[in-house]
């Protein structure tokens, strides 16, 4: 019993010895890193500000009329990354869009497509049919001619617990947007087929614009990764 009772004391002594020997060096290293990071952050500030200014201008241009995005090669790349899935469950026939966005209805329309008021948000009390969960996503406003609506909550991630997180990829998000955008034309006299077509085209443009709205200025960040070091 006595020898067992000493085990906890032995551990505490060893642990204290370790702390005395290594903590000062660790604290010094930490202070050194923080000092260097502060110096780098001061140096980067003008470039961060320039990035932010360009992003602000980009967002303003999208809010004025986002259709200039449709001529970019990056938009073509986005289209390739968001191929519609087969919809065997749907009675609706998917009519493929023209390969060139510059031939789309929304591009040739006289009405600007204004995309603005983008906000990323979280809902900690979200729910499905069975369980509550935290969900993450974004809300954005779209205006085309006289049609204007806030597309509330495109979901990017649902967190049910530490072992159950669901991610929504670009196509998942675009499908959510397409469904929400069709409400834009709620109460209009447009034919259903026209609403479907416009909603489909707009969903790509809004989906891509939202990816741009999510861009943040690149900043110096300290991330120590032993695993990365080992593999290097």
């Amino acid at each position: 019993m006595d020898s067992s009772a000493n085990l906890l004391h032995d551990y505490q002594v060893l642990s204290q010895t370790h702390a005395e020997r290594f903590d000062p060096a660790l604290h010094s290293l930490q202070a050194q890193i923080e000092q260097q990071l502060q110096a780098l952050q001061q140096q980067e500030e003008p470039l961060v500000q320039q990035q932010q200014n360009v992003l602000n201008a980009l967002q303003d241009a999208i809010a004025t009329d986002a259709r200039w995005l449709m001529g970019l090669s990056e938009f073509q790349q986005y289209l390739q990354n968001t191929q519609p899935r087969s919809r065997s469950w749907s009675t609706r026939e998917i009519i493929p869009l023209d390969p060139s966005p510059l031939n789309w209805e929304i591009y040739t329309s006289e009405n600007a497509v204004q995309i603005s008021n983008f906000e990323e948000d979280e809902e900690l009390d979200d729910y499905d049919d069975e369980r509550t969960h935290a969900s993450y996503g974004y809300t954005v406003q779209v205006k085309m001619g006289t049609y204007c609506d806030t597309l509330y909550r495109t979901t990017t991630r649902r967190v049910y617990g530490i072992r159950d997180t669901r991610h929504y990829n670009l196509e998942d998000q675009r499908e959510q947007l397409e469904s929400a955008i069709s409400d834009l034309f709620y109460g209009s006299n447009l034919d259903r087929s026209i609403i479907d077509h416009l909603s489909q085209e707009l969903s790509y443009l809004v989906g891509y614009a939202c990816q741009l709205f999510m861009m943040k200025p690149r900043r110096v960040e300290w991330c120590y990764s032993p695993a990365a070091e080992e593999s290097a």
Partner: peptide, 10 residues
Amino acid sequence: LHSKITPETW
């Protein structure tokens, strides 16, 4: 998803 009912809803 409990999404909106449309003419294409099965």
